[in-house]
């Protein structure tokens, strides 16, 4: 462990209200600890921010997967293992279940949480493109109240978000119809090996068509191609109202390439990322059922 633990204090609120009170009262920004699969790594590497940590793990108010009205509501502490196992998620939001199954290894899936993945804000987070593709909203909670932010407006830059210092992620809300089985969908992860590899490129696509065969719904979300996970809105707009044919696949691919800005790093190259991002999209389009 590289971190000097003397610089850290850990507090463990017993209830959500207690946690919100601590957040409201604190002058410094508190570090929120959920499953620890990112923060403990930072701690071990000596790059964790010293100061007060709030351990949310015991807050059962932040757990659970429920159908509420026309939404699926996921507590922020929902683990990847729970996502994988949930009949509701596997049936209604399959991309989320697939993404959860590719995160890290089993031990990480047991501890890692959806809220933690969102809060950590890595552009390579595997669960984030499915959330974008499903029009998720992030339920932020503070002593001041609760507000919902559409996930595609949650991040303001690299690992930066709209969450205020006294707010925590309470829940993730997804419209039930977002993953409707009448829509085609796909989750793609390109990594160095089968498990415990941060993605070179990660993507989630959802596509729906009207009775006349034209596209009436499209979501294309990517990770590891920009400083934050991104929805490619111009690409989505480009295909809406059109029929899928080779010309559309070609022109939409050009739009895709104009809309992403990956970088060279140790895991891959910008060039390769652009290429596989385009390939993933083209294959999805070519294989949309009923073409």
């Amino acid at each position: 462990m590289r971190a000097r633990l003397a610089g850290f204090s850990l507090e463990r609120p017993g209830t959500l209200d207690e946690a919100l009170g601590m957040l409201a009262a604190s002058k410094e920004r508190l570090t929120l600890l959920a499953g620890g699969t990112d923060l403990y790594v930072y701690l071990n590497a000596g790059v964790a921010r010293p100061g007060r940590w709030l351990d949310l793990w015991g807050l059962d108010e932040l757990r659970g997967i429920h159908e509420v009205g026309d939404h699926v509501v996921l507590g922020a502490l929902t683990t990847y293992t729970e996502l994988r196992a949930s009949e509701l998620i596997r049936g209604a939001l399959p991309l989320l279940a697939q993404a959860a199954a590719t995160v890290g290894a089993v031990a990480i899936q047991n501890r890692g949480t959806l809220g933690g993945n969102i809060a950590n804000g890595s552009p390579a987070g595997d669960s984030l493109p499915p959330l974008l593709a499903y029009d998720a909203e992030i339920g932020l909670r503070s002593a001041r109240g609760r507000r919902f932010v559409p996930f595609d407006r949650f991040y303001t830059g690299y690992r930066a978000s709209v969450a205020a210092p006294d707010e925590l992620i309470e829940q993730i809300r997804i419209p039930l119809g977002a993953g409707s089985s009448s829509r085609a969908c796909r989750f793609v992860k390109v990594g160095t090996r089968a498990a415990q590899a941060i993605s070179k490129v990660v993507a989630a696509f959802v596509l729906g068509r009207a009775g006349d065969g034209t596209v009436d719904h499209c979501r294309a979300a990517f990770g590891s191609v920009a400083p934050t996970p991104v929805r490619l809105r111009r690409l989505e707009q480009h295909v809406i109202g059109k029929r899928i044919d080779p010309a559309l696949i070609r022109t939409s691919s050009d739009v895709l390439l104009s809309e992403i800005a990956p970088i060279d790093d140790i895991r891959s190259t910008a060039r390769y990322r652009r290429f596989v991002a385009r390939t993933a999209w083209q294959r999805f389009m070519e294989e949309v059922p009923g073409l």
């Binding site: 160095t192 090996r193 590899a197």
Partner: peptide, 16 residues
């Protein structure tokens, strides 16, 4: 070396 830890130097494991 740019990838001196197992975070970036990947070896195949049983799943691969």
């Amino acid at each position: 070396p740019r990838n001196a830890t197992w975070q970036y130097y990947k070896i195949f494991n049983t799943q691969d």
